[in-house]
């Protein structure tokens, strides 16, 4: 067992964990943050994507002990003042989700894309989502949602400056 401290969705948490505990298990089992899902065991499906220090990663391929001292954001940490993040809102507007199981990972991944490339083309969006599988939507509306969010976020930015 090992004692770890990390910030999860803005809240500092200290816990004793088994070394073999994956970050995703820590989030789901220990912290009961069940919005982050598990969909494969070969780190390909991306339903477990969260942000660690702002960067999207697959929480099934990282140990909880490796997140010691880091800042983790999950889907539960995106809402601000009761408002959805523009990416969540865009998925809602564009019908970018059906069963919702891939959605948290998809949203977290897409947010990271816009951090790195605020104005991606459709092709760039499709390529970025290589590590996020969706079985319901055929990705069509997900791509539209990411485009909508890109526009919304850049407008927000303009409004601020």
């Amino acid at each position: 067992m090992r004692r770890i401290t990390m910030t999860v969705n803005g809240r500092e948490i200290t816990c004793e964990v088994e070394e073999r505990l994956l970050l995703v298990q820590f989030l789901r089992e220990t912290l009961k943050l069940t919005g982050t899902h598990v969909g494969c065991d070969t780190s390909q499906c991306g339903v477990c994507v969260v942000h660690v220090d702002g960067q999207s990663i697959k929480s099934c391929s990282m140990l909880a002990v490796q997140a010691d001292g880091r800042s983790v954001t999950t889907i539960e940490g995106l809402m601000k003042d009761g408002e959805m993040h523009p990416m969540q809102a865009a998925f809602h507007d564009q019908h970018g989700l059906q069963c919702g199981f891939c959605t948290p990972g998809m949203v977290m991944s897409a947010i990271d894309l816009l951090q790195k490339n605020p104005d991606p083309t459709e092709q760039e969006i499709r390529e970025w989502l290589e590590g996020n599988l969706c079985r319901c939507t055929g990705y069509h509306n997900i791509v539209k949602a990411v485009r909508q969010a890109a526009t919304a976020i850049s407008r927000q930015g303009e409004a601020r400056t």
Binding site: G35, T36, I75, Q88, H92, L97, G100, V107
Partner: peptide, 11 residues
């Protein structure tokens, strides 16, 4: 969508 998009789905 609301619950599924905010991590509050219940699978």
């Amino acid at each position: 969508d609301q619950r599924l998009l905010t991590g509050r789905g219940r699978y």
